[in-house]
Nucleic acid binder design. Structure first.
Length: 231
DNA sequence: GACCAGGCACATC
DNA sequence: GATGTGCATGGT
């Protein structure tokens, strides 16, 4: 386990050196780990996490801009409007009918016990918050963990397809590992640091985008020296 | 025109 | 439980 920690930290340093801090979403880098985001920023992160499912981030940003420009980025507005009204504003994010329903489901979960108070919804402990999010139809483990890490600012590790691919190529996991097993590998190996976990996931996505598609192009990848049998 | 993007739910076997 | 499919836009 100590070896895994060393390797994961060395990989982070290599990625960070190559790409710089990714500043994903309102980063917590400049604030204490326990300082919550302003509610409008927290909601924006939650909405972004749902809209970005299987979708290019640039398309999501247009949708978020539409919601903000229309004065629609609030729990109250999203709760009051039908899915079709939301779908019109988020067209650019793709799967707009599905995602409009998912946003409504999420907002309903917030509204049920917390009214328009997104901060209150996010202020619960990680286990309770995660359970509540996973109970929402349309929110799976990756979206739930993204909301917990980036909107609530609480330490939970986000695993995505790039994470799985990169770790598999580097011999840290094999193809059979579940989402939760991979998450546990990071969480038990790395220091429990929200800022580190925030940027670690973003760094893996940067590697994935630049070096893992459409087929592996490893030349210049900061992680190539960590490949299995190559260290 | 094909492929890809910061997934998820549901049906089927 | 594993695998396949629908959902949809916009960039490369």
């Amino acid at each position: 386990m100590k070896g895994t920690r060393r390797k994961l930290m060395a990989m982070y340093r290599a990625m960070r050196k190559r790409f710089g801090h990714q500043h994903w979403w309102p980063t917590f880098a400049d604030r204490p780990a326990d300082a919550p985001l302003p509610p409008e920023a927290a909601l924006e992160v939650c909405v972004g996490a749902i809209l970005t499912q299987n979708t290019n981030w640039g398309n999501v940003q247009r949708a978020i801009a539409n919601l903000i420009a229309g004065g629609c980025m609030s729990v109250g507005w999203l709760h009051a409007k039908p899915p079709a009204a939301i779908a019109r504003l988020i067209r650019s994010a793709g799967y707009f009918n599905v995602k409009a329903r998912r946003l409504k489901n999420f907002i309903a979960a917030v509204h049920k016990n917390h009214g328009n108070d997104i901060e209150g919804f996010l202020a619960r402990g990680v286990a309770e918050l995660r359970g509540g999010l996973l109970a929402v139809s349309g929110i799976g483990p990756e979206t739930a963990d993204s909301i917990i890490l980036y909107a609530a600012g609480k330490a939970t590790f986000v695993v995505d397809a790039y994470t799985r691919r990169i770790l598999s190529r580097h011999g840290l996991i094999d193809g059979g590992w579940s989402y939760d097993e991979i998450k546990e590998l990071f969480e038990s190996s790395l220091p429990a640091d929200v800022h580190l976990w925030n940027d670690y996931h973003a760094q893996l996505v940067a590697v994935g985008k630049n070096f893992c598609r459409p087929v592996a192009r490893c030349k210049g990848c900061p992680l190539v020296r960590f490949r299995r049998g190559n260290q």
